[in-house]
Each structure stands twice: as structure tokens, then as C-alpha cells.
């Protein structure tokens, strides 16, 4: 299979995934709550008012019509109006997504090099004390929930040492550096969670590559150790790690509810959380679907990157 066909197939698969997600989201948010108007207006409302609201929202139409209406508008960028703010959902979502991406990007830029470096160093010292320290620390940090680490970090760096601001919100028009300072503390709990995963993958891949016959071939050529590692070990060792990193990207963007709430940050996680609390269904649906889109794109990028780096997929089999 040639590289282009591989990518096209992956794109097609992603579209199928997104379509399935849209069906699930639609059913979950629009159908399961039953009477939408009643859910919004509460149990004491006049049935006529409920019926009127249902009609106004269009939820009294057949399901397929509703789904088509909703999904076709979503695809063209029209995500409906928020029931709470009485305004189009789009701009809210865009702002929240941009905020989440900023936080995710900082966490990502911190954790990927750290995780890979830690994993490779551990692999080079496999079985020794340094390996144990990195592995055990990584694993321990992974199991600490973000709200625990967030609060500990706030107490140490925000309250006690007063090095960093305790809230992620900054004043309107703040410069990039100020924004970065505000985002550093929220990013660290994410780094702590992900470091273990990435380091473990990088370590496993490197240990395997160091033991591989092709590494022996390279050593037996008389190449300096540095060249052996850079040319022969790492390119093969880190391929599987890329996939793991990309799936974690999805988490970084979608799973930040806790961190965003603790640090009062207007990201997509807290947006969805608030929409769910306020029964703002259009906001909720679009938000979840948006996370799905980001997740899918991240996975797609990982797959394409993997195929670009892996000649077996890039060039297919023997001719």
C-alpha cells in the first residue's frame, strides 16, 4: 500500500469515527433527556409553554430531520445558539478552544521532551538506580489525580513561594509572557500525569532497540556510541511512542475539566462542564463534538507521522 493510499484510508476512517461520534452525541444530548423543553423549564412549568419551547427549538420534529438539521449546520460551522447566552455557540467555542490549545501546547512542549529524555536515559541505565528512580517516579506521578497535584502546586508555588499566579485567567490584552506565566502552573499537573506514560513507552522502545540485532550490527561496524544511538537506536525506538503521544494530545485538550476548574481557566473543558450544568444542549453537543474533531485530527497526525517515519508503511512490501 502506498503512502498516499494509507493516508486517504486513515482520513476516511476518521470521518466514519466522527460521524459515529455525532450520532452518539446527538442521541445522548437531544434524545435521552426526553422532553427538552421540560428539562429546561423545570417540572412546574405550564405544559403549553413547554410545547411552545419544544416547537421553537425544533425538538418536536422527527429525529432524523433534527439530526440532519443539526449535523448539516455543524459541518458548515453553524453550531446553533446557546440556550443560556442566547447567542451563537461558535464564538464561545472558538475562544474556549483557543484557550485550551494554549494550555495543551505548553504542557505538550514541556512533557514530550522530558518524557522521551527520561525514558531514553532510563533505558540506557536499565536495571540501575537511575532507571528505577525515573520509572517509579513517573509511575507514581501518573496515579496522583490532577486536583491533588494542582492544589499542592498552588500551595507551594502560588501561596507559599508566590512565584507564580494561582489563577490561569489574565487581564484582557496581557502579553504572551504574562499568559505563559499564568499557564505554567496549570500545565505542570498535566505534565506530571503524562510524563510517566511517555517515559514508559520511550523506555520500552529504547530497551528493545538497544538489544536489537541491527544495533549490534552498528556497534560491530565500530561506530561511536553516540552515532549508534542517534542513527540506529532512537529512530526505531521512538516510533511507537509517537502514537502514544498523539492519543494523549486528545486527553490534553478534552480532559482538562479538573485543571481548568481549579485554575479558573475558560477552556473547552470548563465550557462543557458549565453547559452540562446549565442544560445548554447546543453548547454541550458542539463542545463534545469539537473535542472529538481535535482528538481525531491528533490521531490522524500521529498516524501520518508514523507512516512517514516508518519505511515499511511508506513503501509497502517487497516488489
Amino acid at each position: 500500500m502506498s503512502g498516499l493510499r494509507f493516508v486517504l484510508r486513515r482520513v476516511a476512517l476518521s470521518l466514519v469515527t466522527l460521524w459515529l461520534l455525532s450520532v452518539i452525541v446527538f442521541l445522548g444530548a437531544q434524545v435521552l433527556p426526553g422532553d427538552v423543553g421540560r428539562a429546561i423549564l423545570g417540572p412546574l412549568a405550564d405544559p403549553r409553554a413547554v410545547a411552545a419551547l419544544d416547537h421553537k427549538l425544533g425538538v418536536d420534529r422527527p429525529l432524523l430531520v433534527q439530526y440532519w438539521d443539526w449535523s448539516s449546520h455543524f459541518v458548515t460551522g453553524d453550531m446553533g445558539r446557546s440556550l443560556v447566552y442566547r447567542q451563537p455557540v461558535g464564538p464561545f467555542l472558538a475562544a474556549a478552544l483557543a484557550n485550551s490549545l494554549k494550555l495543551a501546547a505548553i504542557a505538550f512542549l514541556l512533557v514530550v521532551p522530558l518524557g522521551i529524555f527520561g525514558g531514553v536515559v532510563a533505558a540506557m541505565n536499565v536495571g540501575r538506580a537511575l532507571d528505577r528512580i525515573i520509572t517509579v517516579t513517573g509511575l507514581s506521578m501518573t496515579v496522583v489525580p490532577e486536583f491533588v497535584s494542582s492544589i499542592v502546586l498552588i500551595l507551594i508555588f502560588g501561596v507559599w513561594l508566590e512565584w507564580l499566579p494561582v489563577s490561569a485567567s489574565w487581564r484582557e490584552g496581557a502579553g504572551a509572557f504574562t499568559q505563559f506565566r499564568h499557564l505554567l502552573l496549570p500545565a505542570v499537573p498535566l505534565v506530571l500525569v503524562l510524563f510517566g506514560y511517555i517515559a514508559r513507552m520511550a523506555r520500552a522502545g529504547t530497551v528493545e532497540a538497544l538489544d536489537a540485532d541491527y544495533t549490534r550490527t552498528a556497534v560491530m561496524k565500530g561506530l561511536p556510541f553516540r552515532t549508534v544511538v542517534w542513527r540506529h537506536v532512537l529512530p526505531n525506538a521512538l516510533l511507537p511512542t509517537i502514537t502514544v503521544i498523539a492519543t494523549q494530545m486528545g486527553y490534553l485538550i478534552g480532559g482538562l475539566v479538573v485543571v481548568e476548574t481549579v485554575f479558573h481557566y475558560q477552556g473547552i473543558g470548563s465550557l462543557i462542564y458549565n453547559a452540562a450544568k446549565a442544560k445548554d444542549f447546543p453548547m454541550l453537543e458542539s463542545g463534545v463534538l469539537m473535542i472529538g474533531v481535535v482528538y481525531t485530527i491528533a490521531t490522524l497526525i500521529a498516524d501520518v507521522l508514523y507512516s512517514l517515519l516508518n519505511p515499511r508503511i511508506r513503501f509497502g512490501g517487497r516488489e
Binding site: 540485532d213 541491527y214 549490534r216 550490527t217 542513527r231 529512530p235 515499511r312
Partner: peptide
């Protein structure tokens, strides 16, 4: 110099 079993593994798959 050395040559061993399983040439498929003795060569770097990504070079």
C-alpha cells in the same frame, strides 16, 4: 566483522 542468523533483523529497518 560479523554475520549472523536472521539478516532481516541485522539490518536497521528505518535506514
Amino acid at each position: 566483522a560479523m554475520v549472523y542468523q536472521e539478516p532481516a533483523k541485522a539490518l536497521n529497518p528505518s535506514m
